[in-house]
Design a protein around this nucleic acid. Structure first.
Lengths: 222, 222
DNA sequence: GTGCGCTTTACGGTTTTCCGTAAGGAAATA
DNA sequence: TATTTCCTTACGGAAAACCGTAAAGCGCAC
């Protein structure tokens, strides 16, 4: 079993349960941090001392408080960790259950397991840890289990997300076009952007832009 | 101290910590349910047997799964409980930190305390329980503490929420007007609705309807 | 009844979205 | 080089949002 595990979770109520689960699994060293920044520091330090962590268990969303932080969520933490420690196994433990975001975690962030917080998540977490230790890939908690080959949500790319984000900030088509030109993102003609929004509306069965943004918010795309 | 307490919380990770905290407070009877429906049943049964609960601790959001439920969130549960058991004390323990929703809980739902899940929430919860036992009113965990006299967000009423919800579903002004006429909600002229939306846009500093809905979603209004 | 204040509704002009069609341009193919 | 195909952009008309102003409706005091 893993020897040294780091838990990044801000809610005290939840970290208690995670640590208890890790103790049940007879893990020797269990460290816990409440901020992403601290997690990165600990991983750096462990590497320097030649005693790295075997596993990182992290949440996705962290509450912001008075403390100013560099890494504000789990994705940013994982991105930073990947740069300095490609060996460490990564399990995400979060309430998020939107397939789009979870697929990105596996495909772009290279996590080993995703466990959704739910009514029986401690068992699911324990199972995922054991599977990760046995080097299984793309581990999903059983309440989720969607098809990774389903291209549906993977087709939506960062370009679409950029449009949706700007729309949600109240930009008009013209303003989005100018913004894209300024950042040399192509295509950037108002007509092209309009067409792309139209595709999204058809895809999400949205009546208009307002509806589209509401749906995008619900899906956790933005 | 309270003798009999009911905990309504779907996440197993969190309920463990809550129950542990209640045990620390030497509470004799601690019951726990994962669905709002079950909470209402237990409260009903306890009333019938003339051994009612002293305190209900509930979350706001409950995950939906295969089981079909009548009460799908904490607000609905509290509403139902208020009808059958006006005596029971009510503490809401949730991640939500938007003042609008919390104020409604105190003013319209008559809860005794609100504790925000955070980095030190177990202590906050314990303190809130003790204060509620001493009959204190409108107890807030210390990480929140906003001014109840601040009228800002209280001014937004159910009429505004109705408009926002319909907008988010892709309705046009005309359609909203018709919907309101059908449900005899007044005012229902397109012009009046337009004016109201405009107020909301000024209030939330939104550039247009799309922006407004994005903000409303972020605020948890809809 | 009359006048006042407030809310609701109506109206008109401008901007933006909405949606189809078509032109322009670049890469691929023959 | 000519042709096809796909992607990008332009254009134009209808619908809806946007925004200010004016009129109508209504309760209320006098």
């Amino acid at each position: 079993m893993f020897k040294k595990v780091l838990v990044a979770e801000d809610l005290d109520t939840i970290s208690i349960a995670i640590i208890q689960a890790l103790e049940d699994l007879k893990i020797a060293v269990i460290d816990h941090v409440k901020y992403c920044d601290d997690a990165l520091l600990k991983i750096k330090k462990a590497l320097k001392e030649d005693d790295p962590y075997d596993l990182l268990i992290t949440d996705l969303s962290f509450k912001s408080d008075s403390r100013t932080v560099k890494l504000s969520n789990g994705e940013e933490l994982i991105e930073a960790v990947n740069k300095i420690d490609p060996e460490i196994k990564k399990i995400v433990f979060s309430i998020e259950d939107k397939s789009y975001r979870i697929k990105t975690l596996f495909n772009d962030f290279g996590i080993n397991a995703y466990v959704s917080k739910g009514r029986n998540s401690i068992n699911e977490l324990k199972k995922a840890i054991e599977k990760a230790y046995r080097n299984e890939e793309k581990i999903l908690s059983s309440d989720l289990s969607f098809n990774f080959n389903d291209k549906k949500l993977l087709e939506i790319e960062s370009y679409d997300i950029s449009i949706l984000k700007l729309l949600a900030q109240g930009y008009t088509l013209d303003q989005i076009s100018n913004e894209f030109k300024a950042k040399s993102i192509t295509p950037n003609g108002t007509s092209s952007i309009e067409k792309r929004i139209n595709k999204l509306k058809i895809y999400f069965k949205a009546n208009n832009n307002v509806h589209l943004i509401a749906i995008a918010k619900d899906f956790g795309l933005i």
